[in-house]
Every structure is written in structure tokens, then in C-alpha cells.
Amino acid sequence: MTTEAMIRREADRDLEFAAWFTGLVGEEKLRECIHCGVCSGSCPLAGHMDFGPRKLMYLAREGFADDVLGSNTLWLCTSCYACTVSCPQQIPVTDVMYALKRKAIESGKAQKRHPVAVMAKGFTKMVRKRGRLTEGYLIAGLALRTGVHKYLGMAGMGINALRTGRISLRHDSIKRHDELTHLLDVVDQHREEVAAK
């Protein structure tokens, strides 16, 4: 029988990450968190998470980057904002969760081929290419990248959607597509300039 150590050690802390996280929430705001757990209590998905929002905030504050960025918590969060509106200290938990998602993708620490991260990336690619989203193709791309077998059970629903004209095989696109890609490129350039400074 194998066991996994449940204790986190000082040596596992990533102080740079802890500093980044503190800057993100604001030192004062973070200190105001009383760890009451209302965020986790109000979260409809907490039951499925490695760490609920309260534990996640604690781990992040102490610098346990691998635990935080590799957790399934980030990808289970649906941005329903129940935590944000119930926090007695007005900590914007959902926005913090978004920032952690971005950090997990950037740092490469996100769970490999996690379907939510895969879908989010597919989404941004399709928006860049077309300016709009065609739902059927987003789902098809997701199935191809994470395993078609998982989606076989949804075939009936897919057929229903096609039959009732609610999924189209025609891509929807904007007209001034160049304008949109240029906008996104200029944003990238700007970011590089700021980083260079």
C-alpha cells in the first residue's frame, strides 16, 4: 500500500509565487481574509475540487505553487461568482481564480490536456480565426484533443441539435476580420513593449 505525504514543507514553498499572489490580491486585502470558508461553502463545485477556494487561497498565500497551479480547482470554477458576492471581506475570489488560471497556463503547470484548459485555448484560437464562435466546431475540436470516446454518450444530443437547426456546420465569421486580428496583434505588441521597458 502506498501513501502520500499530506504535510507541506517549508522547502516546497515558492516565495516568488507567494509574492506574485500577494501583489495580485493586495497585501492588505489578503490579510483581511479571515478564512471563514464562506467561499468554499457557497461554491457549487467545491465537492469536486482538490482544494476548495478557501484552502486554495491559503496555499497560494504561502507559496505552494505546484499544489495551486496543478489543482483541478481552477478548471472546475465556472465563474458563477457565488464566492465573490458572499465574501464578508469583499475579496474578488472569482477574479483571483481567473488570474490563477492564466498563471497555470503560462507557467505550464496546468494539468496536462485538462479538458477545460484545452477548450479555453481552442476557444481563443477560433475567435482569432473567425471573430465568432461556432459551438459545434468547438465541441468537435475538444473531443478530438481529449478523446472522442468520452463524447460518444453525447451523440444523441448532438443529433437532436443538428436536427432542430441549433448546431450548424457552417462557420460563423465577422466581415472585417483583418480589423480584429490587427487589434489583437497591436495588443500583443503593446504588451511586449511594456515588458521590454
Binding site: T78, R102, K121, F123, T124, R191
Partner: peptide, 11 residues
């Protein structure tokens, strides 16, 4: 939507 915000805030 929510997906873009999870990848790139500025965009």
C-alpha cells in the same frame, strides 16, 4: 466569454 479571460486578460 469566460474562456478568453482564462487565457489572456488584455485581449
Amino acid at each position: 466569454a469566460t474562456a478568453y479571460m482564462a487565457v489572456d486578460e488584455l485581449k
